[in-house]
Design a protein around this nucleic acid. Structure first.
Length: 204
DNA sequence: CCCTGATTCGC
DNA sequence: GCGAATCAGG
C-alpha cells in the first residue's frame, strides 16, 4: 500500500479529528499504526503527546484546514488591535458532527453519611475498611450496569468481581472492561486493592 | 499488560 | 519516503 492522495487525505482528516494512529491505520488498512505515525510526522502534522486525550475529538472550532483556493484571496488582517484576542468566537460552530456533548450531569454525592451500606454482599470483604464512600458508591453504581457475566464468559479483560452469593441464583461477575492489568474494572479495583491498614504482620 | 504517540535507522 | 523496531509516557 502506498500513500495515495486519497489515503493521505483520510489520514489528515482522521488525525485532525483526534483519532488515534491505530484507529486510522485500521481504517485505512494495509498499514500499521507505526506507518501512520511515521507519515503523520513526515507530513509535519504531529502534535499531541502520548497520553493525550484521545477523546479530544470534541468540538474543534478550528477551521484550520483551508483548501488553498486557486484564487488566493488576500485577507487583510484586522490588525487594528495587536491584542491577542481570538476574534469572533461568539458564533457557535455551524457544523455539528457530534449531536451534543454530554453535559456530564454530576449528582453531587451527599456528604459522607453512613459508610458501608451493609446491603451489598461485597464478597471480598476488605478487613478493615476505610474505603472512600465515593468508591463504594461507584461500585454499587457500576454493579447496575455491569454485564453480569457468568464464569464462562470471564476473559483476561473482563472484570472478575463477583457479585452475589455463589450459592444463590443471583450470582454473577461484573464483566466490565478491566483496568489495564488488574483483574477488575476501575470501580472494583478501587475497593479491591486496599492499602493494607489493619493488616499488621501477625507474629511470625 | 493494554494503549498512545515519538524517534530511530535500515531499506 | 517508508515503516518496523524501539522508546517513552499513561
Amino acid at each position: 500500500m502506498s500513500w495515495t492522495d486519497e489515503r493521505v487525505e483520510t489520514l489528515k482528516k482522521m488525525w485532525g479529528e483526534g483519532q488515534s494512529a491505530s484507529q486510522i491505520a485500521k481504517e485505512l488498512g494495509g498499514v500499521t499504526r507505526n506507518a501512520v505515525i511515521g507519515k503523520v510526522h513526515r507530513l509535519g502534522l504531529s502534535n499531541r503527546t502520548a497520553g493525550a486525550p484521545a477523546a479530544a475529538a470534541a468540538a474543534k472550532p478550528e477551521p484550520k484546514a483551508k483548501p488553498a483556493a486557486p484564487k488566493a484571496e488576500a485577507k487583510p488582517k484586522p490588525a487594528t488591535k495587536p491584542t491577542a484576542e481570538p476574534e469572533a468566537e461568539a458564533a457557535p460552530a455551524p457544523e455539528a458532527e457530534e449531536p451534543a456533548a454530554a453535559p456530564a450531569p454530576k449528582p453531587n454525592l451527599p456528604a459522607r453519611k453512613q459508610i458501608i451500606p451493609a446491603g451489598q454482599p461485597l464478597p471480598p470483604q476488605p478487613s478493615a475498611n476505610e474505603i472512600s464512600p465515593e468508591a463504594l458508591a461507584k461500585v454499587s453504581e457500576v454493579e447496575k450496569k455491569a454485564k453480569k457475566i457468568g464464569l464462562m464468559e470471564l476473559t483476561e479483560r473482563t472484570c472478575k468481581w463477583p457479585v452475589g452469593d455463589p450459592a444463590t441464583d443471583d450470582f454473577w461477575f461484573c464483566g466490565l472492561p478491566v483496568q489495564q492489568g488488574k483483574p477488575y474494572c476501575e470501580a472494583h479495583v478501587g475497593v479491591a486493592f486496599q492499602p493494607m491498614s489493619a493488616r499488621r504482620d501477625r507474629r511470625r
